[in-house]
Amino acid sequence: MGRIGLALKVLFSGAFAKQVATIGAAPAIAHVPAERKPVEPPKPVRSDAVTLLATLQREARLLDFFKEPIGDYSDAQIGAAVRDVHRMTNDVLDRMFAIQPLLDGVEGSTVNVPGDADAGQYKFTGNVGDRRPDSGELMHHGWRATKCDLPKWTGAGDSALVIAPAEVEVKGS
C-alpha cells in the first residue's frame, strides 16, 4: 500500500479504513468467505468531541480532575488521585487511537528526513535555511493515532451536550 493509502488508513475511522483496505481485493476462487462488513453506525447527532469527553470522564474521571481547583491541596493528595486518572486515561486513549510514536528513532539521535515526506510530519527548529533540511537531531519523536474508534452515541435531544449525567441515589429499603 502506497503512502496515500497508509495516510487514509491513519486518518479515517476504522470502519472506513476497512472498506478502503478491501477495495480491489478481487475474488480468486469460487467460494469466497464473506468479508467483514462493519455495522452501519447509527446517525451521530452529537459532536464526537463530546463523546470523547464523556468517555474520558466516565472511565477516567478526567473532567472531575481538571475542573477541581487544586490550589489548596498538597502534592501528595493530588498525587494519590492522579495515578488512577493517569492510568485510565492512557487506557482510553490507547483503545480509541492506538497511539504510537511517529518516528521510531531514539530522541537525541540523528534522523534523516525523506525528501517526499508530508510537510505535516515534521517540525523543523533551529538553524533552518531556505531549503527543507534532510537531517537533524530528533528532539521529540512525535505521536500518531493508528486508528480512530470512538464510541457511538445513540441518544437524542437535549442530552447531546451532556458529558456526565447527574447521579441521584434513592435511599431506603
Partner: peptide, 18 residues
Amino acid sequence: FPVAIPGRSSRLIGGTVA
C-alpha cells in the same frame, strides 16, 4: 503500591483516600 479510592462527588482530588 498505593491503593486510592476516588471520591464519588465531582470533587475527585478532595474525596480521594489512599
